[in-house]
Design a protein around this nucleic acid. Structure first.
Lengths: 217, 217
DNA sequence: CCGCATCCTCATGGATACTG
DNA sequence: CAGTATCCATGAGGATGCGG
């Protein structure tokens, strides 16, 4: 059975209004956030979006797919559905990044019982570090609560990507790397360092990439 | 009587989620859009947000004020309340701009019966032209459906601002200006030129600022 | 199991009337 | 003009069911 969704629109010929017609409804941009880290299964999205109802996730995914933001693909082998951002969907990286940068006054208070996933650091660090440059290529590993994040910086800028569930020591062996253990729920590097996060490597590199003086450890 | 608003939160320690806790609800960013053009009265906001219910506008304004995005100020003289963005609220310009840029695939189809306000061009053109530079300072006047917009470009970038309800010829008299009449409902300059919009001034300037070859008139 | 669909309850949004 | 009060429609949240 087929139901035509009304798709409540603002009815305004304005770029902002039309963009919000597509990604303005509740949970939409958070789904995009999850997919910006990488392709994900339905169950992974559920796990990465604590609080979302299963029917809502299904509905949002269908809407985003019809709008051309998300694409359903079939994982060869595991024989399951994998959700991926389309090229246009990936361009929401800029929007997400600007909101992340705008939110810093809301983040300095720390987690207030809010849930935290290390996976979210990929998007957050990308937003905050994207424009940082270093004269020498440098790789930094961040071990957060439940994820390991790699930060690569060089002359052209900084790229952030997830590293599966491996330990940073393993992932970055053989590379000129710094390993920084981010305490659970600490988004800013300053907070992590102040809390005594694990920190190894050349301090100059750390400062150049993360913009923080590596105060010890 | 006192009502505690639940303020539905995502409950996630993530910059995006916390930003959306503040500006993620329906109409919020559109209210910010209106205020990005300039301070506005309650009635002006109602007029600039066709479709919004009065109680919703009042509720959103209260929420945005409590969050520190909007500030209520008293207009000396007219003795009324004027809503203004706080400095933090003004920083949402980047977010709005990124959504406007992202929305171009949604805008090329033209208005489909959607309402259009020339006032919205200020935000849209700012998003699209902000980084354009010219060797010589240039001013362009855009006469849209119900508003006149000034675009100033020089070595440092491009700034867009509203010009009241005056006629462009009056506003820009005496300045090295180009006057472009944008047909109602045409957001892209390409569309306006193709539709035979009024276009006067040095073609080189127009092309440098707006990035469009002034195909005639 | 995973990937949803259905059902039910209640919070939120929308339209309109009304008031200082 | 600048909102508040009221009522109804819609969408979100939570539990559960169900087919592959």
């Amino acid at each position: 059975m087929r139901v035509v969704v009304a798709m409540r629109s603002y009815g305004q010929y304005c770029g902002l209004a039309r963009a919000l017609d597509v990604v303005g409804s509740r949970w939409s941009l958070l789904i995009v956030r999850e997919l910006l880290v990488g392709p994900a299964r339905y169950g992974e999205l559920l796990a990465g979006l604590p609080g979302i109802a299963t029917n809502l996730l299904a509905a949002r995914l269908r809407e985003l797919e019809e709008a051309g933001v998300v694409q359903r693909t079939l994982d060869t082998g595991s024989n399951g559905v994998v959700y991926v951002l389309t090229p246009w969907g990936r361009e929401l990286r800029d929007t997400v990044a600007s909101l992340v940068r705008w939110s810093t006054p809301l983040m300095i208070s720390g987690p207030q019982g809010d849930t935290f996933h290390g996976r979210w650091l990929v998007v957050a660090l990308d937003a905050l570090l994207r424009d940082r440059r270093t004269t020498r290529p440098t790789t930094i590993g961040l071990a957060a609560a439940d994820a390991v994040v790699a930060v690569h910086a060089d002359r052209t800028g900084t790229r952030v990507e997830p590293c599966g569930g491996d330990q940073p020591d393993t992932v970055f062996r053989g590379e000129p790397a710094i390993v920084l253990g981010l305490a659970s729920g600490m988004l800013t590097v300053e907070q992590a360092v102040a809390a005594g996060g694990v920190l190894r490597g050349r301090e100059a590199d750390l400062e150049a990439v993360l913009g923080v003086a590596s105060s010890t450890r």
